[in-house]
Design a protein around this nucleic acid. Structure first.
Lengths: 206, 206
DNA sequence: GTCTATATAAGGATAGAC
DNA sequence: GTCTATCCTTATATAGAC
């Protein structure tokens, strides 16, 4: 019997990790409703019954994934430093977000899928922790604008734009690859360079 | 019996439209696998059996929705005019895309859901019609850059950035609302203004 | 901890009456 | 065209042997 109080054994730790990795793959592709416990068990290389020994319900697996997701996803924004040089700080933030899209595309798609569904699981954190963090960093950016160190625009929508453009390379990967075709191998590097130009300099020639 | 050759009756046209509207709602929220015929029939206000009289399979409903989707979604890009003034053309394109996100959010989420799944249905069109259109318009933008009328950057990634930032307001609507809170009522107008500034002028003060 | 077996429900689809 | 009834498969979850 699986105890919540007892310290997990090596095999428990290993199997739970195995299941979560498999679940990430399935949930990120098929969404919560579309994913089946069978498919997850299959991807984890174990029987459905065995999987349900570790996570009693499908919802438990999903919640377990969601727990760390938002926090990992927001870490780059937390690092935005009010004491730093504004243009450098924004540039570094864009780079960190592009790296996340490159290294954790399934996490990005899982998050996108949860948002598209209307965030039934993460809804509360969005209006709580997330809003608090974004409001705080938006205030920092607004201060920089007030000091004349950045062109003036709405800081919240600037943050949305950085999220959207970077996560796009994970969420719409199949479309990006289809459009770029054979030359798409360098897509993340090219994206980073292009986004830096757009956000920092814009399209209008100087 | 439903004939494919005979001209549809008024009631057929009405019911097929009713079903497609309901299917858009369900598919855009739950994805293809997560959506159930029952849920669609429920949303359409008819029995599952009756629905299956009009669309023999769940896949038929989905394909019917997909048929028009990409074309409608790309129409704004087609309007980008090589003979126009570059900055004006880009600005107008951004505005048209924001209007789509505002007026057809479910279509946007359905498209996003299909991409996240790896585009099993639209895959071929992406590498075909879509790539051809984007390559063509990217060439137009590149010409403008060669003429010194736009700051130089990768045109493909510029188009991706416009897609990402505008569609974000439909696909991540729940997150945008959560972050903006009570002041979010003007979010689309503010987004349009902010995106114009970002794309045209960038962050670095002039 | 893992396996076999199974309960129970949901989901896609069809048959045939009206 | 719509309804009732039904078939078959898939899916979530549990029971109990080993």
């Amino acid at each position: 019997m699986l105890s919540a109080t007892r310290k997990p054994t090596r095999i428990q730790t290993k199997n739970r990790a195995l299941i979560e990795r498999a679940a990430l793959k399935i949930f990120s592709r098929d969404g919560f409703r579309g994913a089946t416990v069978d498919a997850i068990a299959d991807a984890a290389g174990m029987s459905k019954q065995n999987l349900l020994y570790y996570f009693p319900t499908k919802d438990d697996i999903y919640r377990s994934l969601m727990e760390g997701l938002l926090e990992d996803w927001l870490a780059p924004l937390r690092e935005l430093d009010a004491g730093g040089e504004p243009i450098e700080q924004i540039a570094a933030y864009i780079d960190r977000k592009i790296e996340l899209a490159r290294d954790f595309p399934m996490e990005s798609r899982l998050f996108a899928s949860e948002m598209i569904r209307g965030a039934p699981t993460l809804g509360d954190v969005l209006a709580g922790d997330l809003k608090a963090l974004v409001d705080g960093k938006a205030a920092v950016i607004r201060d920089w604008m007030d000091e004349g160190r950045l062109n003036r625009l709405d800081p919240h929508h600037l943050i949305f734009a950085i999220w959207a453009t970077t996560q796009h390379y994970a969420d719409f990967d199949v479309q990006v690859r289809a459009v770029l075709g054979a030359v798409g191998d360098r897509r993340l590097e090219d994206a980073a360079a292009t986004l830096q130009t757009i956000f920092l300099d814009g399209l209008r020639p100087r």
